[in-house]
Design a protein around this nucleic acid. Structure first.
Lengths: 103, 103
DNA sequence: ACTTACGGTAAGTCATTGCTTACGATTCGT
DNA sequence: ACGAATCGTAAGCAATGACTTACCGTAAGT
């Protein structure tokens, strides 16, 4: 269902940088933007896309907003790729079998 | 490494339709394009992108070219998401632990 | 040999999207 | 209460990308 938004969101290199930065744990927007070569509003826009895709969660903490990776969002994408991988392997084995029988 | 091209390629809905059509096994270009609402050259361009990303393999068969899903390409993407999922879960558990300790 | 089928490539067009600056709203510090 | 900090949103712009038509090469059929 929602894996489509997730894969679209992760297609952008900048957004992958952001989500890779969040691997260690939740971070505030300013902290994320610090050290990146784009403006802070641009980071905010990316965070919005990632959140809408279900890949991030937000927890307001006073003045700041802490973003963290949402395991469920990543898992949805994982499941899609697992099923794709299963089918690909099955088709590959079947094709190899056909070829062996053909020769 | 190459998972970046793969995730970029899979971000397009039309390309996901194509790769979903190939789950059953190899198909020729015309067969893939048949029933889709875009032109055949457009399908060819998508197939090129998917091949360059390592997600498809091509085996010429006489007049036609049979495209099939490359399990290795899918697996590279799977591995990236697995590592992301692991880190996300770890950070999530750590945050939950911190919160429990804080209260 | 000649025609038909198959499919990749080129050029051009239009929509999408990622970025910037400017602005507004909320919260913290003093 | 007032200034500073944090962050989201709006508007505008430039670049990327997906599609079309037109064209060309190669293999099959007759």
């Amino acid at each position: 269902m929602s894996y489509e938004h997730a894969i679209t969101a992760l297609a952008d290199p900048t957004r992958r940088v952001i989500i890779d930065r969040l691997r260690g744990g939740p971070m505030a927007v300013g902290t994320i933007a610090n050290g990146m070569d784009i403006s802070r509003p641009a980071v905010s826009q990316h965070l919005r896309v990632l959140s809408d895709a279900g890949l991030l969660t937000v927890t307001p903490s006073g003045n700041r907003r802490l973003y963290a990776i949402a395991p469920d969002g990543v898992d949805a994408l994982r499941k899609y790729l697992d099923s794709l991988w299963d089918d690909a392997l099955g088709a590959f084995a079947r094709a190899a079998h056909e070829k062996a029988k053909g020769q």
